[in-house]
Amino acid sequence: MSNRAWLFLIPALVLLSISAFIPLMTVINYSLHYIFAGSAPTYVGFENYVEVLNDPAFLKALGRQMVFSLMILVVEVPLGIGIALAMPRKGKGVALTLVFLGIPLLIPFNVVGIIARVFTQSSIGVVPEFFALFNYDYNVSLHTTDAILTIFFLDVWHWTPLVALLCYAGLQSIPDAFYQAAQIDGASAWKTFRYVTLPKLRPVLIIGVLLRFMDSFKIYAEPLLLTGGGPGDATTFLSLHVARKAESYELGYAGASSIIYLFIVIVFSYLFFQLLTNIGTGENK
């Protein structure tokens, strides 16, 4: 430790402890206490965890969250790959497509939520107006499926470009020789995709899947701004559920559910990472 280079780590460590370590410890601390405003907190061990895991509202929010994230992955990843494959490789079209794809990524979550809210409002919104043309009564504050599908569509619109851009970068880095070899070997278009493109995209797909999984798993602003988690609790995803508990000063419950939440994200991210790293490498044969 005599090496003074370690000193350079101090700013990063200070920032990290303020932004991550201290809050995390605080949350863990909360999760182990019964806290009621005005009186001193009492230590209750893992009681809060037991309560959270037995709470039907939490389990329902978790289930909703899982289904939602799965839908996101199933749609955004193949769609992203498809868009990347269809994008022009050279010429003026490249810059144009990149800008076009980049625009959604530049819009903050809350702005997306507000745009959606304005667009879907039953009195003035363009979306209900559009569906009215087909005699469909679109109403996000009344119909569960309308609300869920609207948030789903928002997310696909907002974040598929990220997957597409990652894949596009990945495609650009595949040397032509691989396609030429496949051509010489007489591979069909599908086989070329399956055995050249897809394996070569693996590193960017791992990043894409992990990012989209983690981000969609903490979706918050869009459902909050669109319907406040409704109608009923139809779009009360995990983050909304936890935040609501914290807002109502159930800090012990909120702390415990946050830790469980974090644990789930880590476990699934790890599983996805392992799966995507090893699948089809011939390692397990």
Partner: peptide, 12 residues
């Protein structure tokens, strides 16, 4: 054709 750098299908 055999190319300058080895072309193998990684997933097979």
């Amino acid at each position: 054709q055999v190319f300058q750098f080895p072309v193998v299908y990684d997933s097979m």
